[in-house]
């Protein structure tokens, strides 16, 4: 009896920590989305913010384009990354780990520095602009184009796609492909009937790990094409530029809540194919290799 109580008591600090810094903060988003700070200092219930965030055309537009850019980038990462993972898995084991490290190394550069590096390359007076001039394309720059955003996202998040697919390929029994070939399957059949289903968990983790940061980013559009307001940019603007650092933007909170709901829905959808554990494993691999 005493033992049981002891055991329960020992868990209390953990729950206090989790509730205080994980659960309550999420409720704060909901709170600020529905409650307005009054001039006197009290709070007043309001539907104004949430109504604005789901009816204002600008916000709807930014949600849609964020999903569009993230979806295109995810597809590009999948198309580019799948063969990379496949080829990596074929390399002789002697040098495979080393090549893998080469693919992961750029991820150790800070995200901001990587995006800045991409911008320096794309700028009008950057190396690509110089190349454009050389090729006779006057004043050519990628900065400010839709392609810039896509390239920026693919550049930053491609390894997130390669890694989980590569992991599921290494777990796969190579004999299966040979067996399928022996049984008369052609290359396409081998791909659709053997490779694709067996690497599905990796593909799904990869899609999550690319789509999530892409759909919420504000750094990439701000640095590479600041004419585009993604939902991340709008939320960032509401909190960091419109409001002072001691106030919370109600509309910003409402937009974050909508964003959170979108994230939860897509995560539950994805979780049917993969699980959080797998995503964590992948994140860990890219860090501690």
């Amino acid at each position: 009896m005493k033992n049981k109580l002891n055991k329960a008591l020992r868990a209390v600090p953990l729950y206090v920590w989790v509730i205080l810094f994980t659960v309550i903060p999420l409720f704060m988003i909901v709170f600020y989305a529905f409650f307005k700070v009054q001039d006197g200092g009290g709070y007043e219930f309001t539907m104004e913010f949430i109504q604005k965030s789901v009816t204002n055309g600008d916000y709807i537009h930014s949600f849609l384009i964020s999903v569009k850019y993230a979806a295109v980038s995810t597809v590009v990462c999948l198309i580019v990354g799948y063969p990379v993972a496949y080829f990596l898995n074929q390399i002789s084991e002697r040098i495979r780990d080393f090549i893998m490290v080469l693919f992961l190394l750029p991820m150790w550069m800070n995200f901001i520095i990587r995006t800045y590096a991409m911008r320096s390359l794309m700028e009008k007076n950057g190396l690509l602009g110089f190349l454009w001039d050389f090729l006779g394309i006057k004043g050519g720059t990628l900065i400010g184009t839709e392609a810039a955003i896509i390239i920026g996202m693919v550049y930053n998040f491609l390894p997130f796609m390669i890694l989980p697919i590569y992991t599921s390929l290494t777990k796969m029994d190579r004999g299966l492909i040979e067996a399928a070939q022996d049984l008369g399957a052609n290359k396409i059949k081998v791909f659709t009937k053997v490779l694709l289903p067996l690497t599905m968990p990796g593909i799904v983790s990869g899609i999550t790990m690319v789509f999530m940061p892409s759909v919420t980013t504000f750094v990439i559009p701000q640095m590479l094409n600041n004419k585009v307001m993604t939902i991340g940019s709008i939320i960032e603007y509401k909190f960091k530029q419109e409001a002072s650092s001691t106030a919370v933007s109600g509309v910003g909170a409402a937009l974050s809540m909508v964003l959170m709901i979108i994230v939860i829905i897509s995560m539950t959808f994805v979780n049917r194919f993969s699980d959080a554990e797998e995503i964590r494993e992948e994140k860990e691999k890219r860090r501690v290799n």
Binding site: F21, I24, P25, L26, M28, I29, F31, Y32, M212, P213, V215, T216, F218, G232, I235, E236, F239, V248, G252, A253, S256, L259, M260, V263
Partner: peptide, 12 residues
């Protein structure tokens, strides 16, 4: 999403 985590803590 990191932006949600960051904002939620900031609001707290």
């Amino acid at each position: 999403a990191e932006i949600v985590t960051g904002l939620s803590l900031m609001m707290l």
